[in-house]
Computed example of a mutant assay.
Amino acid sequence: MLELIYIAIAVLAIMLVASIWLISRKGIFEDQIRTKSVEAVWCTIQAENETDLNRAIKLFNKAEQLKGEIAGLIGESPDLEQLSLADSCCNLADKELKDMSLGELQRYYDQQNNIANIYNELYKGRN
């Protein structure tokens, strides 16, 4: 009976540590987004006030890169949406595709999408 109490206390302690860790991660995540947002705004303002064109372009590019990172962290990135669409276009419900090994699947998609021809054209003259 005493062992059961010790096990219950251990489980509660693990749950407490896990909840504290998850809450602290959320705060770190929000601070990271806030820091990147402030830096992106600062880069944009500096680029608008910069007299040197090359430096202004570098600051604008840095601001755009930070905006892309923020969109990726928030989950509103168009790049991430394209990846989710690529997964939905694959029809893995077919029984024969599920039974294929990894090599057979790779060969199947290579033949379906002409991957070998694309690589031959891409690396023509480099071999």
Rank of each mutant, 00 (worst) to 15 (best):
R34P: 01
P78T: 04
A93G: 10
K26D: 10
E48T: 13
N114F: 08
S88G: 03
S24P: 00
G125N: 05
K95T: 10
W42T: 11
A63G: 15
L73H: 05
E104D: 14
G27C: 06
R107D: 13
R126K: 07
M1Y: 12
T44E: 15
D99G: 08
Q65C: 03
S24C: 06
G75E: 04
E104N: 06
S19T: 09
I20K: 10
D31Q: 14
L2W: 08
V11Q: 09
D99H: 04
A13Y: 00
D31Y: 06
L92T: 08
R34W: 07
A40G: 12
L66H: 01
D110L: 02
T44K: 07
W42Y: 11
I70N: 01
Y123W: 03
D31H: 10
N114C: 11
T51M: 12
V41S: 12
T44D: 14
M15G: 13
I74P: 03
K67R: 12
F29N: 14
P78K: 07
N61Y: 08
E69W: 01
G72T: 07
E3A: 14
K26N: 12
A56W: 02
D110Y: 13
L102C: 07
I74C: 02
Q65T: 12
K58A: 15
L80M: 04
T35C: 07
I28W: 05
V17P: 02
Q106K: 15
Q32P: 03
R126P: 00
N113I: 04
A18L: 12
V38L: 15
Q112N: 07
N117I: 03
Q112S: 10
Y119I: 03
K62M: 06
A8N: 14
D31R: 15
K67S: 14
I28V: 14
A63L: 00
A47R: 01
A86L: 10
N49E: 15
A13D: 09
K26E: 13
L102A: 10
G72H: 07
A40H: 01
L85P: 00
E39P: 01
L53I: 14
G103I: 10
S84L: 06
K26F: 08
L80H: 04
F60C: 10
E81Q: 11
V17E: 02
E3R: 14
E30A: 05
A47P: 00
L73K: 09
I5E: 15
I57K: 15
A47K: 00
S37N: 12
G103H: 08
E64C: 07
I20P: 00
S19I: 11
L22S: 14
E81Y: 03
I115T: 09
K36M: 15
F29T: 03
T51P: 04
I20F: 11
G125M: 03
L66C: 03
I14F: 09
D52P: 00
R55S: 01
I9D: 14
S37G: 04
F29V: 04
I115G: 02
L4H: 10
A18S: 14
G72M: 07
L102N: 09
K95P: 06
N120R: 11
D87E: 09
D87Y: 04
I20M: 14
L85D: 09
E48F: 07
S77R: 05
G125I: 01
A18D: 06
D52T: 06
E50W: 01
A93F: 05
N113A: 05
V17G: 01
E3L: 13
A71D: 11
R55F: 12
S19W: 05
E96K: 08
W42F: 11
W21V: 09
L92A: 08
